[in-house]
Design a protein around this nucleic acid. Structure first.
Lengths: 124, 124
DNA sequence: TTTTATTATCGTTATTCGACGATAAACGAA
DNA sequence: TTCGTTTATCGTCGAATAACGATAATAAAA
């Protein structure tokens, strides 16, 4: 059963942090939509300064979310699914637990009077 | 309903930002593991100052990731799956695209010489 | 009423982030 | 060689974050 390779809290937070900016989400979506190689096309698309976009790409690369292959003058970026798997696992675990324990409100675990409230149960 | 309601980049980044700290990941894991109501037990568990943990809980609540129900003197916290669904959808989309397009390396989309390398062809 | 227990908020400080322009580096082409 | 194109790095500034202790707020219980 316990086949848990359980990434550390720091690891999971680092992945989330890499995704914690609108420009970086946009870049990920761009890489998803494009099936061809895009280099600095990203820069034009996000609408920020070239140095800023380069910094966002650096952050994504440092987190392993994207990989960059140097082409002639440009760089060919791609997504790396493996880097996102730990976060996906955690979210999936939340989803499984929530749908098992909770109802359609999406609330997980306690929060129901039956499981949460035990101290002093007044009749009425 | 359709599953294509495409949350904004800002929305997705906000969810990721809520998860972008080890203490908050730890809190989420705590809420996952416990099936009973835990109030300030979280504070003791994460090992940070009470005010700091309260701030992390505030951030999680503001993002909708957790909900807090006031009990007698304590607060009963629970996870809210619905708030995480947009991020899950994006990650799932990455996973689907990656496993479809890429091989076992987890790299998505381009990065293969066939699709990537079409460099400076001819100007029309 | 006061006490007690728990949580939220305030004020401060050190660190990090995000954005920009300017500049450097890399390398094929001319 | 020099030029041109693309990307990375540097320096700086303002804003945001994380952490803490101290304090306030809340509400049940004495």
């Amino acid at each position: 059963m316990s086949t848990e390779n359980d990434p550390s809290n720091e690891q999971l937070a680092a992945i989330a942090k890499a995704l914690a900016h609108p420009a970086r989400i946009q870049i990920i979506r761009l890489l998803l939509s494009k099936t061809s190689c895009i280099g600095g096309e990203i820069t034009h698309e996000v609408g920020l300064a070239q140095s800023t976009v380069s910094e966002h790409l650096r952050i994504l690369k440092a987190a392993g979310v994207v990989a960059g292959e140097i082409e002639h003058p440009r760089v060919c970026y791609s997504l790396n699914l493996n880097s996102l798997l730990p976060l996906m696992s955690l979210l999936q675990l939340v989803a499984d637990t929530a749908t098992t324990v909770a109802g359609s409100d999406g609330l997980c675990c306690p929060l129901t009077p039956q499981s949460c409230d035990q101290p002093s149960r007044d009749p009425e």
